[in-house]
Amino acid sequence: MPNAGFPVRKKVADFLTNYAIYVSILFLFVTFGLFFPQAFFSIMNVRNILISASVIGVMAVGMTFVIVTANIDLSVGSVAYFAVALGVLAMKRAGFHPLWGLLIILMATIGVGAVNGLQISRLKMVPLIATLASMGIFRGLAFQFTDAASIYGMPPLISRLGIGFLGPIPIPVILLILSYVSAYYILEKARFGTYVYAVGGDREAAFKAGINVPHIIFLVYLLHGFFVGIASLILCARMDGVVPALGVGMEFDVITAVILGGTSFSGGVGNVWGSLAGAVIITLINTALTILNVSAFYYDIFKGSVILLAVILDTFRQRRLGIVS
């Protein structure tokens, strides 16, 4: 038996590697609860946390697929702004039916997913650069279309997605849970999911096993686009329209959530539940910083440190899992 010498130490280390994220959620909860009991009970109850986590959480679903294939997408925040801007303009300026507005938002994000996917899978562009370009282009286009103005006032069909309930459960939370359950099913139970892990784990070996690697990567970006679309809908509904700062810096929150959740930049490893936990952590931190009324500068420093921590964790994990020596 390997490692028979240090069963206890190994078990503790294994436990920490696998469950560190859940332990930290508990830690954050307890800490915030102790230090800000009032705020904690009004704002930080589970339901509100999940609602706040829904946008980043749903985006983190698609991002998990992307990162498991050893790719990345920096454009999610800009793309959300772009899609919401198109949808809001269609409804408010052009007078489209809200259902059309909804579809336009989804089509926009899936369309950008397709563009990013084609660039990366077929044209073999470096994902970091390709999506960095998309990040600039689509925010710029959205500014152009909206004149960088805020437009408010969403029809009921849309706002219900953000503030409505189905029974006792808020609709964003339902969307969040549906996204995760379906993603879990795809990754773990469907052939496609196995291919996603294979492509991320060893691209060369996946090719040799007869997997159409570019096609899988393209489909992953397409699927990711769909989830970004769902998140954009929630965002649009909860904002009651579009604002120019929409989605700024969101890519950092989403990527951090995924990495905190145990998905590795090196590809081939990860699971969606970890990403959900990561999204909750990011939301807890964001909320705490808001309650504390921390200055924007400190806010950035703190967020940067969390990303750094996530990457350090990832490196540590990669070493433990033997991906790098």
Partner: peptide, 26 residues
């Protein structure tokens, strides 16, 4: 070896030919 470390033994053996019900469910 050209195996995928983070997939199960079974999925590795059948990576090119995963037995499935219709619509890609393993």
């Amino acid at each position: 070896t050209s195996l995928f470390n983070f997939l199960s033994i079974a999925r590795n053996i059948f990576i090119s030919n995963l037995p499935s019900h219709g619509r890609g469910r393993i």
